[in-house]
Design a protein around this nucleic acid. Structure first.
Lengths: 260, 260
DNA sequence: GAAAAGCTGTTATCGTCGATTACATGAACA
DNA sequence: TGTTCATGTAATCGACGATAACAGCTTTTC
């Protein structure tokens, strides 16, 4: 069970790397055995990547296509991010190859996404060509997941993924509003609050005391952020993915998030 | 000139890694010298990152703030992507740290972006809170750049960055249309063409010969892709960044791109 | 002016890692 | 029974990151 030991050690590793010796020790074999079975350390890691990708595709198949391809697209995004967060090291191995080694599995994922996009297209939901939409969603999705994985400190917002997702999908699909869903007067209110908050922050007015400015700022922030918690694209029939309870759409910004 | 040798070797490296021995040989010094000056290999790489970041910030300052903060935001995006493509290995060192070592420079860049976003906010151009907008743009920008850098084979489209950029900025700014700029009948035409192309590709009709289907497909693709070459958000006063002649907005899809 | 202190750079070496060679063992088959 | 081949091991190699011990040189101090 060399492969299992490698996967386990990788997941437990703090640096995201494993030594062939450690893998062999954990598996109870000598090094040449590993090298005969996998040929190379890269071969071993490729096998680990393949196994991880098998798991990823399994979770992908669990999200069977529904009648709502736009919702499927959204669930696919969430599922992808959840997988990345669940095994960061493995994700980095899968999507940040050593510059030259392209795991074939990535292309398979690309075609999988393409299928969902095509279903959107045949339903008349696409406003950009299917190929462009696929690349846009794919790069934005993996890119965001990589950012979340490699900069856990910089982007502590759990809802960031949902925000970017809704914006990107709204830019690709028809009939989908970008993340902030407000209408008419609400939109004007939100924008005014956002503008005021920015002005207060960069140039506090002399007419108000610091305490007053702070309180006003708090209210403005609250006004500006309310719409971020609203459900967005494809609001009907929201399904939860098994892996991502925390990245779902309806997650509000109640806890420590500071998006102001 | 140990640092210069390290930077040069890193840029020329094929794996994105350098050995301290190679650096010392190239610099004409012995290893302990390097370790006395930089303490560690990580210390050396951190210095390389700092130097690269100095260059990045220099190119950033060259894009002095104009009266159009939205255009500044766009130029900043292009500049970022151009930097990533110009030195992929360095970029990966800067933005894919070893999981634990957060280069302080990244935070500095974050605040730099925040300043531009705040200028948009005070101009009333923001439809999401400034903090959220900063995180959205930042993660999408670095994420896309990482995708372009680490998967040069999967995303060969030079215009992909511009597409994602316009979509993301449109989701964050007011008065900015998402990438496909079409109006009225044009939009209906494009969507119909996209839908038809997708249907033809997934289920070729029996009423047409293969040749006829192919020709029809070509025309539909052309109809669907025309609007992708149109200028987008902040169309007035488009400035070119020094580093990114190829990622500019007006770049058309004439060459080998296949976004269909 | 000579000695002490400190910076700068060297040679030689250690432990770890990825990878390989040469060899041992045991089952399948003629 | 002897050959073959798959499977495993001990021992080893070269490259790497890192360090100890030592040598030259400038600066400071008495």
């Amino acid at each position: 069970m060399i492969l299992g030991a490698a996967s386990r050690l990788l997941a437990e590793s703090s640096t995201g790397d494993v030594s062939t010796r450690a893998v062999c020790d954990a598996a109870g074999v000598a090094q040449p055995t590993l090298y005969r079975l996998f040929g190379d350390k890269d071969g071993l890691l490729a096998a680990v990547v393949d196994a991880g990708f098998e798991r990823y595709l399994a979770s992908k198949r669990a999200l069977a296509p529904t009648g709502d391809p736009a919702a499927d697209l959204r669930d696919g995004w969430d599922n992808h991010v959840a997988f990345a967060l669940s095994s960061p090291h493995l994700y980095r191995l899968m999507f940040v190859p050593g510059l030259g080694t392209e795991p074939a599995a990535v292309k398979e994922m690309h075609t999988l996404l393409r299928r969902t996009v095509d279903r959107c297209a045949t339903a008349g939901l696409l406003r950009v060509p299917a190929g462009a939409a696929t690349q846009i969603v794919m790069s934005a999705n993996t890119g965001l997941a990589l950012s979340l994985v490699t900069h856990p400190g910089l982007f502590p917002e759990l809802s960031l993924s949902a925000l970017v997702r809704d914006i990107v999908l709204a830019g690709v699909l028809t009939g989908a509003d970008p993340a902030p869903v407000h209408s008419g007067a609400d939109e004007a209110t939100a924008i005014a609050a956002i503008t005021l908050a920015a002005i207060l922050r960069t140039a506090p007015p002399a007419a108000l005391t610091d305490g007053e400015t702070g309180l006003l700022l708090e209210w403005a922030d609250r006004l500006a952020a309310t719409h971020l918690a609203a459900p967005a694209v494809g609001a009907t029939g929201v399904r939860r993915t098994q892996l991502s309870p925390s990245t779902s759409t309806s997650h509000s910004l109640s806890q420590g998030d500071n998006l102001s």
